[in-house]
Design a protein around this nucleic acid. Structure first.
Lengths: 247, 247
DNA sequence: AGAAGTTTGACAAATTTTTGACAATTGCCG
DNA sequence: CGGCAATTGTCAAAAATTTGTCAAACTTCT
């Protein structure tokens, strides 16, 4: 069974996925040729432009010219350590997101990474999809955070930077998960979000709770933020579809 | 403690949101009969069609004919290793998403998955819900066609993102199924759609109500959107054939 | 161990979907 | 043109699903 034709449905998907659109440039700093090649293929098939540098020195030299939207950085590198590259890039472009690739042992403490200035990290056995998701998240993050640090409506003020919510001049205490949920909903205002999408975007790949969990967090948000939690105005249910944040 | 081990009954609550598109066919390549059975039940109960192959050789033989939308691939297989199957499939259909099932030890090397071209992986033991979510994510990603966000005609405005329909400046409330039906019809404007096609595309494989159900939804759409529901202009009946949306 | 946060499962309530009956319409045929 | 069979329109009741809510179980961090 050799080169038979590819099933139609698959071929069509391919075309759709590979259509040229300017998703952004990614700088990959990685010395292993096998990983280089794999990452290049992965991102290019998703519509990103990929620039590859094999060591820290050349990475720092090229990153100005390449003007990437995201940097993916292997921690163990020849010539210049990944940590130093990370620091240096952050010094030159503080808002440029850096995603660090590392073995589990390298990140025995997350503090280190934060000190480095990395925005996210992916540990050793990672799935391509996960990496893609992080890249998308990073891009999404920069394109939004840059514009919106704060949102006001209906006597409520949300400060995404401080992670603080105020309603009627009183601070509302939200848990981490509640805040993340709120943030995602607000940043996607007016759009209907399915529970699955919320789980993917807010909860992420590691944990995967049931959809009931989402309901509960919506419940909490309503109780804490809606004037009348029984008939919510901002956190609306779209029956059979998901939720939608308005205003 | 880790994830639950394939309790199929739990799976049902997973997704409230069946997409408006047809749920696709899934090719499962797995040799353990117990897992085979579990996966078959899991996916079929969710409305996917499932094709099972027990070894790599037969998988490669059948995958062309089956034309799956996603492949779920166990890494350790008899006859032909999972890695090779993965590579071969990727060679033939680069954009067909592959989700790898594996023991943690198999993916100790991060290079492996990338080189294989796998899109995602789930380690055993895995939760059904998680696997389902990955499949949905994979499908969502590939099938994201160049969809229009908004359509206007005859005083009616449909916003697919907000899932909101406005007629003459007033919001028209549609149910989930009504909206999905509308979306499919609009996206296939001017084409005659048979009831069976609608059931397949909008309702999916698993649920298969009678054709009367389709009539009812058309009825609702006419009542809510047509100026004179008695003599519909946009949602036309093609006697003996099906329906056709115009404008 | 205690406290705070998160997730699950149960149940009722709300809402939607499906079914089935019957009327109305259409197309076809003599 | 009228009659017949098949298809479609319509409605309301029945069945099924989805969501709101709560309390208990489970985690995590101190």
């Amino acid at each position: 069974m050799g080169q038979t034709m590819i099933p139609i449905s698959v071929a069509r998907m391919g075309d759709a996925t590979n259509s040229a659109r300017p998703l952004g440039r990614i700088l990959v700093v990685e010395d292993d040729p096998a990983v280089q090649k794999a990452l290049k293929r992965l991102f290019e098939s998703e519509g990103y432009a990929v620039e590859i540098q094999a060591n820290g020195k050349s990475a720092l030299e090229s990153f100005q010219a390449a003007a990437p939207a995201v940097v993916i950085l292997d921690l163990r590198l020849p010539k210049l350590s990944g940590s130093d590259v990370c620091k240096e890039i952050k010094a030159q472009a503080p808002s440029l997101p850096i995603i660090v690739l590392s073995a589990t042992s390298d990140v025995s403490d997350k503090v280190l990474l934060l000190e480095l200035g990395a925005d996210d990290y992916v540990t050793k056995p990672f799935s391509p999809r996960e990496l893609l998701a992080r890249v998308r998240a990073a891009l999404r993050h920069t394109s939004r955070t840059a514009t919106v640090n704060r949102v006001n409506f209906d006597g409520i003020s949300i400060d995404f930077k401080k992670m603080e919510v105020v309603r009627d001049d009183k601070i509302v205490v939200l848990t981490a998960q509640e805040f993340k949920t709120l943030q995602f909903l607000v940043q996607n205002a007016d759009r209907v979000i399915s529970r699955d999408e919320l789980l993917n975007e807010v909860w992420g790949y590691q944990n995967y709770p049931s959809t009931r969990t989402v309901d509960n967090h919506i419940l909490k948000l309503r109780q804490k933020l809606e004037r009348d939690p029984a008939s919510p105005v901002h956190f609306r249910t779209v029956h059979g579809m998901g939720y939608k944040f308005v205003r």
